[in-house]
Write a protein that binds this DNA or RNA. Structure first.
Lengths: 203, 203
DNA sequence: CGGTCCATGTAAGATGTTACATGATTGG
DNA sequence: CCAATCATGTAACATCTTACATGGACCG
């Protein structure tokens, strides 16, 4: 019944009440580092959630031509969100246009392919730097303490992990494409792990 | 003009001609390990690509009630795919319902949260095993040799990387949630890296 | 006086999911 | 005989993106 976007909004409102505008600003960049939406999705969804009794709004002073609404989650909303949060996760289909491009780069000039992968690499570097800065701010919350702060931190760690993995992959691929490959087939060690740890291997 | 799905189909057809059915079977599981689609998307898209001159079909013998069509990519299709493959990648919005769930798990019973993360963990383990088996089959193609085989291999490596990162994250989170945390804040070394290497850290 | 921020909404279009529909062949 | 596989399509629905629309306040 409730959409994924709905749960994203409930997740934010469970932490603090907010206006639709507040929510749309926060969701321009991914929330929990793994979801995003625009205001044109958010406003209708808030109305639907309220009709379902999961939210309530009060009109407050604001700058817009229409009344400014501050939304708060209801007890029913909390319950529904809580149940969804621990319900069995569906096997999510990963999607990446970048990977699709790489899949067909064998058709193109090798130099052009390398340039494209370099761009991907630098995008991941700056994204990781962003996340690393956020991590430095919040330090490492105790899972037994403020649980909502720890949950935010856990999704941030996942973002950093995922950027580290992407960076390692880019560096491996660039080595291969440039012909610097040592022939071992292993991924290279990365000398510049700024922020976010590169964890050790098993052996 | 051409959709992402269109490029996914062109990417497969650039390797070998195929029927819509073939394509739909291959795309039930992600192609290049990072895209998927169902037959109801694929058939109309094939018609559109053909109308745009990027594909051509011949009718062949087959079992269906309608004529079975074998599609092949045209030179124009190859050119368009090639250009797209090395064009600047857009910053992709990552989406994960699992992460959204984790973001709100602080509302729920800790034991239920742990059970849910354990399920995520085991899903990633089996996915990685699947990928590792595929990797063992293909070994490590030379980037200077069959370039299309190497491109497939590169996307498979990305899939393995991403599974390794997800597994490491699950294991860290489970330690934290169970209260086994050493307090170092670092991710733990993982003792059971089956298939797919866990690469070394920088220092 | 022009641009940005606040603040909310609608509408049109692209894309993705789920269900409906047909019908022959093969294997248990 | 029932189910799965081969093989192609349409229709309804949900979701996401992009553009249109309004209007006050503040800053340069």
């Amino acid at each position: 019944m409730t959409s994924t976007l709905g749960y994203a909004l409930l997740g934010l409102l469970a932490r603090a009440p907010a206006t639709g505008y507040d929510l749309s600003v926060r969701m321009r960049r991914p929330i929990g580092y793994f979801w995003s939406a625009t205001h044109s999705q958010i406003y209708p969804e808030l109305a639907r959630l309220e009709a379902a009794g999961l939210l309530r709004h009060t009109v407050v002073d604001g700058a817009g031509p229409r009344p400014t609404k501050r939304y708060a989650i209801t007890d029913e909303g909390c319950r529904e969100l809580r149940d969804w949060a621990v319900s069995p996760p569906e096997p999510s289909a990963e999607r990446s246009t970048t990977m699709l491009r790489v899949y067909s780069q064998w058709l193109a000039d090798p130099a052009a392919a390398i340039r494209m992968v370099e761009q991907v690499h630098s995008m991941h570097r700056s994204r990781r730097a962003e996340y690393a800065a956020l991590e430095a701010e919040a330090a490492h919350p105790d899972p037994g303490g403020d649980r909502s702060a720890f949950a935010s931190y856990a999704t941030l760690r996942a973002g950093i992990e995922s950027e580290n993995g992407a960076l390692r992959w880019c560096e491996w691929l660039l080595d291969e494409l440039r012909g610097d490959g040592t022939g071992s087939g292993d991924l290279p060690a990365t000398p510049d792990a700024a922020g976010g740890t590169y964890p050790g291997r098993a052996d």
